[in-house]
Design a protein around this nucleic acid. Structure first.
Lengths: 127, 127
DNA sequence: TTTGGTACTGCAACATAGTTGCATTAGATT
DNA sequence: AATCTAATGCAACTATGTTGCAGTACCAAA
């Protein structure tokens, strides 16, 4: 697919992902990098990174886009069917390494599943 | 919670839901009713209907909000944990009546699950 | 190490979904 | 009919995400 050049912006984003085990919202990434690059660039790099299989994307319960490092994505298959967990208190999202079988439903041809589990994360449940 | 008055607008929306077994996107509802009411009103009535347990809401794979009639919601519990199915061709969404157990994940306190199954619906797979 | 093609970026303007404040209207209750 | 207040319309706003285009910088080839 697209060739990805190792620009400053690409490297900064890769850096941020390597330092974060949790998923990151685009809004957050745009904010984090606003002194280094334009938001359009953030959106475009993330798109390229996804099509390269470096990250995968999904929407949170508020409809905002998030990205997370891929562990088992390829450029052909971004469909880890792993679930995501969002804390309803702090909003943080993490990928769960549990593999969940895509539910079979009679008469439906299902290709993939987006599973968002909602609850309270460890940090927030302490308080 | 809120008192719901039987206004023209409320009745129109209830009507639309009674005529549709599928879920409806807010965008679509705003379009459908643009001669009868303001979009702000649509958003507000849907909110009230949800808190009354008449409908439930969720986001589609593009992050847009949808509503569907409740079958087993109460005003206390909108958490049918039924999955939704979105056709990636035509975009239509339907509620699946299958009850899916909320997956248990060790060390996570999970309250609810949003499950969106993506595939091709019957109409679209004919073509 | 310079050159040149083109991938990439920044900017500004736009598109769309959803929200808010406030003045006015219209259900319901008496 | 009078009245209380939920509900509505409107306009202006916020936020997320997108597009076109001109200019920049990566990288490979000479």
């Amino acid at each position: 697919m697209g060739i990805i050049r190792k620009t400053k912006s690409v490297e900064l984003l890769l850096d941020i992902f390597s330092q974060n085990s949790n998923a990151l919202s685009v809004v957050n990434l745009v904010k984090k990098t606003k002194n280094q690059m334009n938001k359009t660039t953030v959106y475009r790099i993330l798109e390229r990174m996804e099509s390269e299989g470096v990250v995968h994307s999904f929407n949170d319960i508020n409809g905002n886009k998030w990205y997370a490092k891929c562990h088992s994505c390829s450029s052909d298959n971004h469909l880890d069917s792993h679930p995501h967990f969002q804390c309803k208190d702090c909003g943080a999202i993490e990928c769960l390494s549990v593999e969940i079988a895509i539910p079979k439903v009679p008469n439906f041809q299902i290709d993939s599943a987006e599973i968002m589990l909602v609850g309270t994360c460890r940090n927030c449940s302490i308080v």
